[in-house]
Amino acid sequence: MITTDICIIGAGPVGLFSVFEAGLLKMRCHLVDVLPQIGGQLSEIYPKKPIYDIPGFPEIKAEELIENLYQQILPFKPTFSLGERVDKLSRTEDGGFLLTTSDQTEIKAKVIVIAGGLGCFEPRKPELQRLEHFEGKGVVYMVKDPEKFRGKKLIIAGGGDSALDWSIYLTEIAEQVTLVHRNESFRGAPDSTEKVFDLAKAGRLNLLLNSNLHALNGNGVLKSVDIMNKQGELKKVEADYMIPLFGLSPKLGPISEWGLNIDKNAIEVNTFDYSTNVPGIFAIGDINTYPGKLKLILCGFHEAALMAQSAFKFVYPNQKLSFKYTTVNGVNAF
């Protein structure tokens, strides 16, 4: 059980900066993010893209902004549950919250801050009948522990860098790797593409180009996958695991079931302090909505600062908050 003052859902730029604003007011934070790294869409979607509207930075790469924010919050010793999704939220007797993640991590917090951007990044799924039936029983969307695939027969589907990279890596571990791709060439990194073709030539990788996943077979557990080529010919490939790697796409996820007022996939908040309709739960950044809302990182930073002032009342109900500038007080690390 992790106990903290504030549990921040989402470790994007706004979630990270909340740790700073909370830290100035002596509140500790734990962050949960479904992605395996911090930074949200900045790290996942556009790490190398320059951003031009961060005050004080005429130009900064997305990944640099995340690194800077991380350095900025380190004095306040944030803790993280990465690669986990908050699935359940309940009230505790003392008026706080208990959150349970997809990995069954339990987090007790006095305040919840949802800084979830556009929601959870979830894997894009192929359209296959009975796909859900095989999820976790042969169909996996992420390679968390490669050792799980030792000596197994794998089918990897996709044409991006991750499909190429995992195919190369897993040929060393698995008994057999089949890579299925819709087109006849790859647009990933030239090095990886060359390696994949070399492995196929050497007979170490079963490469099926111009082909699509067609059907999953097995009684309860995945046994084989039917793959159809552009000519409409079917091929049955035996498989212990199928790993579709078609990138990630954002979904609001379990947040939609927590009794919050939601309008078009965004959480309605009071602009006084970005509180939601549930006392003790705040929503900041791209995930909230209010009249005049602009989805900008800099607006999220502002929302984080105001949120922290009100969160203080839940964390320290008997204390009076006096506002102090960092230029006067400095940053007092925990």
């Binding site: 799924k125 359209e127 589907a157 991006g160 790859f186 990138g247």
Partner: peptide
């Protein structure tokens, strides 16, 4: 190229 790179990754393209 940027658009093709993305389209190439999608399951339903």
């Amino acid at each position: 190229d940027v658009e093709l790179d993305m389209l190439d990754q999608l399951p339903k393209a």
